[in-house]
């Protein structure tokens, strides 16, 4: 039994919303964790090719 148009649209919007929500949270967590890792493990500070710290530009 196919979904009515309205319900199909709502399901599609819900799917996109959750995809965005999960990936936005992941994005924030990556930023937070990379900052923490850089603070806790000095040798892991992200550097550019010249070896200069580029995190707090």
């Amino acid at each position: 039994m196919p979904l009515p148009l309205g319900e199909a649209v709502m399901n599609a919007l819900f799917m996109m919303l959750v995809v965005f929500m999960v990936l936005v949270i992941l994005m924030i967590l990556i930023r937070v964790f990379t900052s923490i890792i850089a603070a806790v493990v000095p040798s892991s500070k992200p550097t550019n090719a010249g070896g200069k710290d580029v995190r707090n530009k």
Partner: peptide
């Protein structure tokens, strides 16, 4: 990490195809 937003937005076709397939009579 903001690349993740592009990865999310590129799932837009899934949403569109889901609606069109439903209209076409697929379960």
């Amino acid at each position: 990490p903001s690349s993740l937003l592009l990865g999310a937005s590129a799932q837009f076709g899934i949403a569109i195809a889901f609606v069109v397939a439903s209209v076409m009579g697929f379960t």
